[in-house]
Amino acid sequence: MVGLFAYYPALSAFFHSAFEWNPGSGSTFVGADNYRQMLQDAVWWHSFRNLGVIFVFNLVTWIFPLLAAELLITLKSRRWQFAMRTLLIVPMAFPGVVTALIWGFFYDPNTGVFNQVLAAIGLESLQQNWTGSPNSALISLLLVGFPFIGGLPFLVFYSGLNNIPREIFEAAALDGLGRWGRLWRVDLPLIAGQLRVLLFLVVVGTFQYGFVAYVLTQGGPDNATVVPLLWTISQAFTAANWGYAAALSAVLFTVTLAFSAVIALHRRRETGMADGGRM
């Protein structure tokens, strides 16, 4: 009886994931046609290019949470530290859809905040249809959530840096290491383990990106902001190409899993070396 409860979660979830290759009832066998079609699908390839941009941008924005975490641990007053930490992560408490919709409101070409600001400082020429023009749509999506602090990276940086013993910082200061030098030679190496976990999560998370894009642009205009997830969904639900959508989602699934596996293995090897090389 006890075994039943223990086995159930594993089995039920495996049951769900095993349906990866089943494109639906009453379908005819088409062999690898769906995959051949995928290789020639320009939108599909474009969607991965967008993912690449999103991923790189995500990494660059780590600067903000890292800065915030560094400043936070430098604060002397415990009370300030706590208050600031709490305020910085409050945006995490708001539902994602609310954040996305408010930003969508900001981007509105007529009443949106961005165009209003540009008008107020006399730069009407820079006004644009932020999410509606292919040139600015992707960058508009990426800026949602600025300054990107209320999120997992900040929590990881902050708890990582907080766990470094103060004596190490004092020793670094005695050795004449400046703030900048300390960041590169002390802080970052000491939280390298957490950074790798975070990188892994960002990679997996990037493949699942699509929610903000759906709310703000639906992958448009003209597929400028399409990502694999959105393309898969639109193939299934708009174009009713269930078999093709199943093939796409199987590929997305495999690619994500492969990336996870590569990073997990790489991490294991590196931590093994670090252990061997320690004093």
Binding site: H16, S17, P23, Q208, G210, T232, A246, S249, L252, F253
Partner: peptide, 12 residues
């Protein structure tokens, strides 16, 4: 297992 890539099969 990335949950969101199961959307389509799970939906079917």
């Amino acid at each position: 297992v990335p949950g969101i890539t199961n959307l389509i099969p799970l939906f079917v």
